[in-house]
Amino acid sequence: MTEGAVARAPARFERPGMGGFIAWVCMLALVIASLRGVGFSPGRFVEGLPAMAAFAANLFPPSTERLAPILAALAETFMMAVAGTAIGATLSLPLAVLAVRRFSPHASVALAVRGLISLFRTVPDLVWALFFVVTVGLGPFAGTLALVVDTIGFCGRFFAEAMEEADRGPQEALAALGAGRSAIVVSAVLPAAVPTMIGTTLFSLEKATRSSVVLGLVGAGGIGMELEVAMSFFNYPEAATIILAIFALVLAVEQASQALRLRIIA
């Protein structure tokens, strides 16, 4: 290799332009300001470690006295997640089709549906749970309704993106042979989007399982209510049992969903 060739080789790293440099500085300043704003202090964290250890010690050994009602509440939590995800994902499908401009009957319809899906996604599930507790009363039905709305917010967006990213070739071929819009969606778009949609639904089930724990804290059913009661009465060994049960459920759902996803994508 000649020295000339070495000299002509491009630089390993491009020098950032003035705009890029300023953007990096601004981002760094924002992070530093945020850390100061929240009073981030490693020292205080280290000082608090003995208190954390004392709390953790109170959790052990976990109590098995009320194992049966805890497992029943855990089952209820899982059923809320399954029902909420199933209904939410099903309702997401037509909404996602309408949210894609190319398949929507009108641009305003696509915009309105996108807005609705965004609203469902941006309002926290805890707020939806409070809303439905007021509507249908305490219990798992309110929690399930909150999960339905949350799932639509999540699945609606990703289903629509999967449809938008579907290969245009088969769609063009079916359009060329005189297929209508709905026939193209059913014949070419949905088959292409199905793996992503199933993956998204399984992610949604994992998310709903975690969420359904928190929803119980506002009286929307499931094991969260048991956790709330145990913590309120300082019954830490029972709280430990509940936390371990939740951990086992979430882990099981994640493992099962990952195995299913791999199988479907393959």
Binding site: P170, E172, A173, A176, L177, G178, S187, P191, A192, P195
Partner: peptide, 16 residues
């Protein structure tokens, strides 16, 4: 278009 066949270079079948 129903009366006009169109064969593409990349066949454009629905893969799944």
């Amino acid at each position: 278009r129903r009366r006009v066949g169109f064969v593409f270079q990349r066949h454009n079948l629905v893969p799944r």
